[in-house]
Design a protein around this nucleic acid. Structure first.
Length: 286
DNA sequence: GCCACTGTTAGCAT
DNA sequence: CATGCTAACAGTGG
């Protein structure tokens, strides 16, 4: 489930262990992993020093001296791990990068083989569409801009939160948690959201993603950080994966439906489609 | 064994 | 263009 909080955690746990080290060689064990190599291929990595690791959307970027960058997408089951080279790699290891100091090596593991790697020379935002097509970062965008990107959209809000060209880094788990927190029904057309609902959605996005980063992400099956440590945000999920359990706010039973082909968990009572109207009616009757 | 399901998204159909 | 569905892969659980 590497979404924004998981990729952020991976990148943070990678930086201190990689910065300043010089590559000896890279061994590509699964050729299709390397989707493009405008920079000339992985052989050219030998002798290059790591400058740092950063994140954009769900992509992890490793920057090297000389303007080279490795861009990883972990998709569903990808892992970036720092491990002792004496440990034998398993059959899911797709790439190994060794360093001249003989210290821990960087391995990319990916059970389902959906992940990919790009090797780029120059500014990656300028040369790869995988980066330039991404929408704004959800933790950087202002409420005003958030309104602006949702207003013209006809689609269902959940599908839009998952659309990386609209906003980058949110996946299925955090979309459900954000919608639950903001009490917005996942199937609400974006254009139909009230100004208040959009403001709550923006606030919940910041709140959920920030606390998920603090908890080092959600570990449900494969995700661990570069040191092999799981995150703990799964213990704080209030909607995702909780079908049939009690809603922590109102006690109703959490439901599972399919929205845009994705499992969607929500509270049918807290997250109503025409909530604003109902509330007015209730207030009046009081 | 078979079928349904899984965190993502590119690519195709509508 | 926007939106919706499926396949790509491997593993797991019923």
């Amino acid at each position: 489930m590497p979404e924004l909080p998981e990729v952020e955690t991976i990148v943070r746990s990678l930086g201190p262990g990689l910065r300043g080290r010089v590559i000896d060689r890279a061994e590509l064990l699964f050729k299709p992993l390397l989707r493009r190599r405008p920079g000339g291929g992985l052989a050219g990595l030998a002798g290059r020093r790591v400058l740092g690791a950063r994140r954009r959307g769900k992509l992890a970027l490793l920057a090297f001296e000389g303007g080279w960058t490795l861009v990883f997408h972990l998709k569903m089951t990808g892992q970036l791990l720092l491990v002792d080279g004496r440990e034998a790699p398993d059959k899911h290891t797709r790439l190994i990068i060794r360093f001249r100091d003989g210290g821990p090596e960087l391995r990319f593991r990916d059970v389902r083989k959906f992940g990919f790697l790009l090797c780029v020379s120059g500014v990656p935002e300028e040369s790869c569409p995988e980066l330039s097509s991404l929408g704004p970062e959800p933790l950087d965008i202002t409420l005003e801009d958030f309104r602006r990107i949702l207003r013209p959209r006809k689609g269902r809000i959940k599908s839009l939160l998952l659309d990386q060209t609209v906003i980058a880094g949110i996946g299925n788990i955090y979309a459900d948690e954000i919608l639950f927190d903001s009490r917005v029904h996942p199937e609400t057309p974006a254009a139909a959201l009230s100004a208040k609902a959009v403001a709550r959605l923006w606030g919940s996005t910041r709140k959920i993603l920030t606390s998920a980063v603090e908890a080092k992400g959600s570990s449900l099956s494969d995700y661990v950080d570069a040191d092999g440590q799981p995150g703990s945000f799964q213990f704080f999920h209030k909607a995702y994966g909780r079908e049939g359990e009690r809603c922590g706010r109102c006690g109703a039973s959490i439901r599972r439906v399919v929205v845009g082909g994705r499992s969607t968990f929500f509270c049918p009572k807290c997250q109503r489609k025409r909530r604003a109207r109902m509330q007015v009616a209730q207030k009046v009757s009081l």
